[in-house]
Nucleic acid binder design. Structure first.
Length: 424
DNA sequence: TCTGGGGTCCTAGGACCC
DNA sequence: TCTGGGGTCCTAGGACCC
């Protein structure tokens, strides 16, 4: 389990925009205010699902992730607006830029929500006033409603912002966990999704309080896994990290694109065509953020919904579109089971490094002093001599991989590559 | 209700090395 | 030469979130 960082007595705000995409659209289309509106691709095929619905539409049972056709059945007067991600990104930037005027300690959690550590900018008694100020500012200046949860840690703050929507402000003190958190249905708890909910139901756990007081710890460990069970239990008692990570989301861990065919696809040419388009898009996005990657993953979802992922890694990071396409093509040809038509194809790039870092890595080997360079090469040669016929390069990598200077693993990889070059 | 697309994190298991 | 335990890295799959 990940070690939970705790600092002493922080005041954390979790600020969550209320039906964000719809709120942005209503700024552009005030004529839709008060109406049953949803943001969704305007299509009735199987790709059309509701991304966000206005509260008016929700009254009719329309909710996100629902198929458009089903939503229209429930709510025939539903106004559909096609998504405009550029617009939402613009609003998001304005919102986060406003947050940064409150405190430098801002952790973006997604396009429309973030954590603020306001410990150093407000007194305990000023908390409600600050929350109201933020809420009013976003509503009056940007016309974006939000809910705010205030707590000593991120988990409780998030539960707090969920507690009352829209335009809620909820303070979740640790001592109120039993009175506010425990009566909530277990499905409302962060980290409890569809599968976990099934387990909880089978154990007759209805509320967060039921879960917190569930006596058979052994059964929880068995069904949820020990570390998940421990993490969830700890949260049910109101614990959680209170460290607002300002570097979060600054860099992507992976970049991916996937697409579902309108109908089950049987033609491999069309599949490769889609892989080409997706691959080019990921390559383009990598280049846009001045990054390269070393691991490339292909995802194939068959019409049976059976999904496989197959990955390939290279030692030298790349964002080259031809190289990337050829890797995805190879993965496809090696792994595609022609007996089944395909529903979805996806490609991803991970182990991402920025080109800036790559330049740094190249210079790090150069920056080692002569003794260190000699030592590294000596170890490598030694291992080659000892292991003729074995995977010598890997052994050399492993020996020199541990790095007392604490260099980033990707940087280490680059140093290894350079050593290989030297030994050629 | 036959189930999108973009992400993150976790875990099991295998390969390899010491 | 054989054997074993522990550590690390990687891949594949799954759960979850918005």
């Amino acid at each position: 389990m990940k070690e939970e960082k705790i600092m002493t007595n922080r005041i954390i705000f979790h600020i969550d925009m209320n039906c964000f995409f719809v709120s942005c659209e209503l700024v552009m289309h005030p004529e839709y205010r008060g109406k049953k509106v949803a943001v969704a691709p305007v299509t009735l095929d199987r790709k059309g699902i509701i991304l966000t619905a206005s509260y008016e539409a929700r009254e009719d049972g329309v909710h996100s992730a629902m198929r458009v056709a089903d939503a229209l059945r429930l709510c025939p007067s539903l106004i559909l607006i096609p998504p405009n991600m550029n617009l939402y990104c613009e609003f998001s930037k304005k919102i986060f830029s406003y947050f940064s005027t409150i405190t430098p300690l801002v952790e973006p959690a997604s396009i429309d929500e973030g954590f603020l550590d306001v410990t150093d900018v407000c007194d305990f008694s000023q908390i409600p006033e600050l929350a109201k100020t933020i809420q009013n500012h976003l509503l009056n200046e940007l016309q974006i409603p939000c809910s705010i949860g205030i707590a000593p840690n991120k988990f409780l703050a998030k539960m707090g912002s969920d507690y009352k929507k829209p335009l809620g402000i909820t303070i979740m003190r640790k001592r109120e966990v039993q009175s506010i958190l425990w009566p909530l249905p277990i499905s409302a708890m962060l980290g409890v999704g569809k599968k976990t909910l099934e387990v909880m139901k089978a154990l007759n756990i209805q509320t967060i309080g039921d879960f917190a007081n569930f006596k058979r710890k052994d059964i929880l460990n068995q069904t949820l896994g020990e570390s998940s069970a421990n993490a969830l239990l700890s949260q049910a008692y109101g614990n959680g990290s209170n460290v607002v990570d300002i570097n979060r989301n600054n860099e992507y861990a992976s970049i991916s694109n996937s697409s579902t065919f309108d109908k089950d696809e049987y033609n491999t040419k069309n599949m490769l065509l889609l892989i080409h388009v997706l691959s080019n898009s990921v390559s383009h996005r990598l280049k846009e953020c001045h990054s390269k990657a070393t691991t490339f993953t292909l995802e194939i979802r068959y019409n049976t919904f059976k999904t496989i992922t197959r990955a390939m890694s290279v030692s030298v990071p790349t964002s080259d579109e031809n190289q990337m396409y050829h890797m995805y093509e190879e993965l496809f040809e090696q792994n595609y089971d022609m007996d089944y038509p395909v529903r979805l194809l996806g490609v991803a790039a991970s182990k991402i490094i920025s080109c800036q870092d790559e330049i740094q890595q190249i210079t790090i080997f150069d920056s080692l002093d002569t003794l260190e360079k000699e030592e590294a090469i000596h170890h490598l040669l030694q291992s080659i001599n000892q292991n003729l016929g074995k995977d010598t390069i890997k052994k050399g990598v492993s020996q020199n991989g541990s790095n007392k200077k604490g260099i980033d693993p990707t940087i280490q990889q680059n140093i290894r590559n350079q050593k290989k070059e030297i030994l050629k």
